[in-house]
Design a protein around this nucleic acid. Structure first.
Lengths: 205, 205
DNA sequence: GTCTATAGAGTGATAGAC
DNA sequence: GTCTATCACTCTATAGAC
């Protein structure tokens, strides 16, 4: 069970990390945002790394939930719901991306977890493609092309928000979904296109 | 004319930024890598921000060269050569990406330039698509779809290397080109496919 | 559990000799 | 142009009272 204070520290960490980036956040800032003293902060976490790890563990739990919730149902609605969950996740934990390389350089253990979860995500996308090929929704491609398509879809999901931030453009769920779907639409069969128009197209307009 | 020392500082900055990231690099490290003292470093640059700005100005000059070198010739070779230049650029200035968000948060003036150059890049991709539609190589799409396609190609170019780094996978020019071309291939006309097989396909195998 | 106070190790930037 | 020495400040982490 999480103590009230620890929960406040977690929320404060997410908030300040999102705003300033992990490397630029001082213990004092986290303490201030938690409305406790730095000494008290030290009582709950032995150092900054412990705070960062704890925060990422929390995030990975949410990420894992999204992966587990995924439904292989016979239309695109499962995938669309999934995209909605990713979008909400990314908006809530902006620093998950903006600090990717800070993690890559300075937190090897967190990076390992990052690798594991993103690999799970990629595998899920790939098996989704295979599932849709089997049910005649996506035109069969070579194994290589499937791999490339999965990678492109994954990149669209992961880097869409960072790309908007870097271009100084606002984020909108509709645009996010549009970008991801645009990776898939060229490979739809006639039946796939019907399904797309029935279930997804209404969502995009 | 660049002084010998200033040039050494520039090289040292690129090297250390690539390795540790801008925020983690100390003036002492740049001085060491330049084989000069911190005091001498201060003689050439009044503060760290000046070093970062100077380094980015140099990088943007190279980036601008790539944009200027672009050729609208009647086959895909101009584009392929362009991709080669981008790849070389990205490998040489890894921190250009890994520190994108450090720039976004702490160097607003550099961010402005980043915006300008990436917008130029996007426009170039978009007009390339229009050029290829006109000469019957790409299937005509709606204005919206062209915009989306350009954005997808741009994202593939910009985020391909970061994505490899984050997945812990090695970078290879062939794979980079494959990823970028895969965004375009679904939209090729029959003539476009012929051209692709003649000029690009041999490069990818 | 929570606080204040402070040690201790940097870290950017400057002063001034050569 | 280049160096050494050092100031002034920031930031993490710890000690110890309540």
């Amino acid at each position: 069970m999480m103590s009230k204070t620890k929960e406040r520290i977690l929320e404060a960490s997410i908030k300040t990390f999102n705003e300033f980036g992990i490397a630029n956040v001082r213990l004092q800032q986290i303490a201030d945002a938690s409305e406790i003293s730095v000494g008290n902060l030290a009582y709950h976490f032995k150092n900054k790394e412990a705070i960062v790890s704890y925060t990422y563990d929390y995030i990975f739990t949410e990420f894992s939930d999204i992966l587990s919730n995924y439904l292989y149902i016979d239309n695109f609605q499962g995938l669309d719901k999934n995209l909605h969950q990713y979008y909400t996740f990314f908006m809530k934990f902006r620093f998950f991306f903006t600090d990717m390389f800070e993690i890559e350089r300075n937190y090897p253990e967190i990076l390992d977890k990052w690798h594991r979860y993103t690999n799970r995500m990629l595998l899920q996308i790939k098996s989704r493609i295979e599932f849709d090929v089997q049910r005649g929704i996506i035109v069969p491609q070579s194994e290589e092309m499937n791999e490339l398509l999965a990678s492109n879809i994954w990149m669209s999901i992961i880097f869409w928000l960072p790309q908007r931030i870097l271009r100084g453009l606002p984020a909108e769920e509709k645009l996010f979904k549009e970008a991801v779907w645009s990776q898939m639409t060229p490979y739809l069969t006639d039946r796939g296109e019907e399904e797309f128009i029935a279930y997804i197209y209404p969502v995009l307009i």
